[in-house]
């Protein structure tokens, strides 16, 4: 059991790693049309994420692989059940990759405008869709006895899930803007710093409404918070992190502001995870069909091997991720190799 719980925690860590890292580059993508005045601005924004975005996206691939290995039944049920939505996510991911890669390879203004639009649209689409998926998972999905479900796109887009999606968009826009404070300067920085308070107000309002709505829904997550009060520490710390981030940004301590924002994302995901545990996917048909850390997991042999692999591999991953971010720290300067 402790192995299954460890993998649950590790899985949340991987998701948090993905949302924190790819989150800011999705945010930059969504903000790009609103922050840039000319092509140079656009290139600066694109190059702020240039050397790191594909490394960030790898966390999603890791998330897929780790889910497959640790909780294969969730991997199978979730992605086949959300088939059409998942296919859309994949299409949009491909479009985003090629948009970043292709955009600056030609001078033509129309070519660049097209890919700018795709970059914005795909960043927005991925964030919204992943948020909607999370919203559906929180509410529970129609899993049958064999762990199968088939949810079409229209059913996925229910009001609560859309609200989660919109909150995710606001969160990553904010996170992206906070990231940009370290990367841009001059007028662009002014625009970013002016935008942050507005984004923060929107995010804060949406988040408060969303929490109220979740409590009102009275799903398993609400019951769990009532039963184990101590997990309330996660949302409380999350709130503290938002406030800290606010304070650091207004004092122009941008790096600390970004770290606080990253902590906030991790804490919000922990809030959801702690409320769900031990359930991974609740079944709206019958609680007995819930996919949990025990009934959906791989056997202990596999989980042990995987844990050894993670313990050996993760320190290296964290080490060179940190190294690369350190190397590319500081404001963006366009040169021969830039996008």
């Amino acid at each position: 059991m402790w192995l299954n719980t460890t993998w649950f925690v590790l899985y949340v860590v991987i998701i948090a790693g993905y949302v924190i890292l790819d989150g800011f580059d999705l945010g930059v993508g969504m903000l790009s049309p609103f922050l840039s005045r000319d092509d140079t601005d656009k290139r600066i924004l694109l190059n702020s994420i240039g050397p790191v975005w594909d490394g960030n996206e790898v966390w999603l691939v890791l998330g897929g692989g780790a889910l497959f290995a640790a909780f294969p039944l969730v991997y199978a049920s979730l992605f086949s059940g959300f088939y059409t939505a998942m296919m859309l996510v994949l299409f949009v991911l491909i479009l985003r990759t090629v948009a970043i890669e292709f955009r600056s390879k030609r001078q033509s203004a129309r070519w660049r405008a097209l890919w700018d639009w795709v970059f914005f649209g795909s960043s927005f689409g991925i964030t919204l869709l992943l948020g909607v998926a999370l919203g559906n998972v929180i509410q529970g999905v129609a899993l049958d006895q064999d762990g199968n479900m088939s949810v079409n796109l229209v059913d996925l887009l229910n009001p609560y899930s859309i609200a989660v999606g919109v909150a995710a968009v606001a969160m990553l826009c904010l996170h992206g803007a906070i990231f940009l404070t370290q990367k841009v300067e001059g007028e662009l920085l002014e625009r970013v710093t002016k935008l942050i308070p507005k984004l923060m107000a929107v995010f804060f309002t949406l988040m408060t409404l969303l929490i109220a709505w979740t409590l009102f829904l009275d799903e398993e997550i609400t019951t769990n918070y009532r039963d184990r009060l101590w997990i309330g520490i996660f949302p409380l710390l999350g709130l503290l992190a938002v406030l800290a981030s606010w304070r650091f940004i207004s004092q122009k301590q941008y790096l600390s502001g970004f770290v606080s924002s990253a902590c906030m994302i991790a804490l919000l995901l922990a809030t959801v995870a702690a409320g769900m545990y031990p359930v991974l996917i609740p079944s709206s048909t019958n609680p007995a069909y819930d996919l949990t850390v025990t009934n959906a997991a791989s056997a202990s042999e596999t989980l042990t091997v995987m844990l050894v692999i993670a313990v050996i591999g993760m320190p290296f991953v964290l080490m060179y991720t940190a190294g690369v971010y350190f190397f590319f720290r500081g404001k963006v300067r366009l040169d021969e190799e830039s996008y």
Binding site: G50, P51, V52, D54, G55, N56, E57, V58, V61, L62, G64, G65, A66, L67, F68, A69, A70, F71, P72, L73, Y75, A76, S298, A299, E301, T302, V305, M306, I309, A310, G313, M314, F316, V317, Y320, T321, G323, V324, F327, F328
Partner: peptide, 26 residues
Amino acid sequence: VGNIFGSLLAAEGIFAFMLEGGFLGL
């Protein structure tokens, strides 16, 4: 096959894909 095949894909993610993705920018 999740117990077996999944673990190989996950190991690829940690040992290989992360290494590529991390250093690609450099």
